[in-house]
Amino acid sequence: MTEQPIIYTEHLTKRFGDFTAVDAISFEVQKGEIFGFLGANGAGKTTAMRMLCGLSLPTSGKATIAGFDVYKQTEKIKQNIGYMSQKFSLYEDLTIKENIRFYAGIYGKSDAFIKDKTAQLLQQLNLEAEGDKLVGSLPLGLKQKLAFSVAVFHEPQIVFLDEPTGGVDPVTRREFWNMIYEAATAGITIFVTTHYMDEAEYCNRISIMVDGKIEALDTPAGLKETYNAATMDDVFLQLARKATRSDA
């Protein structure tokens, strides 16, 4: 199969003044893949992710997201992706249903679509009775699961997850990953960053960024073999220790 990669980058670079935050990274992600995007603090992950989401213009290099160009078609990109992070997710002072309505509205979904899908979503999360509760009153783990559901509500092709499980308890963390798997099985591509090394194992492939470059990219098993390491933790430590720069 010669299916076009859903994320494609070639020598993608971002410079701020004389500081090269992202240094000519090239990689591809296939449709339906769970792609782990790792790196130490300040390695350039956030900057790279911003370019891929169409939030920041690259300095040079090429990239297409779902077939759309990151220079010219950022509006198209935004229609086709979902985004969720630990820091920014839902409005705490709106109810669950209001949040869903709001986000679905941004993507121009029809009322019928929103109604059906909301019912379905609440059922999946066992929240049928709680649709009118304020999001602020939910426990963190549930909030994060809800935020994920909202991020994929408009059926995007790719969803970007920036440390989605930070501080979440181990049981909920796994439930969260279960949702990721289900979304991936349904054909949504997952692009995820995390500080939990066990979660890196759940990804199909992982890239590790060091000093703005992608230093390694392989399956978890492949990486462990290449670096002769027992755990992903070891692989990460070996690579990240090479870093010479620190984040500003």
């Binding site: 603090n41 500080h195 090394m197």
Partner: peptide, 10 residues
């Protein structure tokens, strides 16, 4: 160590 990468944590 919250939000800190694996190297700094160690």
């Amino acid at each position: 160590t919250t939000g800190v990468d694996a190297v700094s944590r160690k």
